[in-house]
Amino acid sequence: MSDVAIPHDMEPHPLTGMYNGKFGIWLFLASEVMLFGALFSTYVLLRVGAPEGTWPMYGQEITTGNQILNVSLAFVNTLVLITSSVTMVLSWAALKMNNFAKGRMFLFITFALAGVFLVIKFFEYKGKFTHHQVVLKEPLGVDGEKVITSKTDKGERKIAVVNGHAENFGTWEEDGYLLIHSDPTESHDHSHELKIEADKIKRATRWGPNASTFLATYFTLTGLHGIHVIGGMVVILYFVLTGASDWKKRPEKYINRIECTGLYWHFVDLVWIFLFPVLYLL
């Protein structure tokens, strides 16, 4: 049985001006823009509507994410992703110039850089999940405590919190107290140990998605982005491993596939370029 040629598989379609695969990936990316656009809009609305003193966390006088997020790690991750986009396009360019070995090498470097991004992200997440916040029922006047006045529709209220690393976090209610090494403050340049009685604690939580609205949106946006990175890695690895046989059979088709992968990868990196300032700086 002879092979059936699919029309416009490699040559541009007269209506769209591009081959089928590229048209398909652009349609897919359009749906992705709507997905991330909806989440960005949600973030903006939640932030604008947040009561004073609750964004990014309870007891924060400054309202930017860099108060609780690691900007240095995020900036390094930004550079990693920008570099990965460069290696991705260099892979495509090398294939266009008929250099398969170089193309595959750049493709593998892109895969490795995506791995580096995820490893750094893992350490950033770990830093959040090992950090704790204690919201007190009323200000205690202890070192390391932050008290701010929050204005809401129902009037003013005082919020007293202690941030730091809690030692008996899982058992503090049974123990009757919580032992926490509070974060350094302006008056103390190092952490110090605080023992807070359980009946004076309103809420104790990790800096996870349930800790604040900001962290919920942070984990949702960066988590969804991370899933997209993993998806891209799977596709890139597939083309690294199966590239040799594809290249022998139909090099033009292989180049087009790498171009479509590159378009997706650039989109994923572009999302991060927007996420970084929105979450960490503004």
């Binding site: 652009w26 986009s85 396009v89 495509w92 171009e259 650039h266 572009l270 370029i273």
Partner: peptide, 11 residues
Amino acid sequence: MSLKAFHVFFL
């Protein structure tokens, strides 16, 4: 839009 154009935009 090709990967080249998208890359220039990304840069």
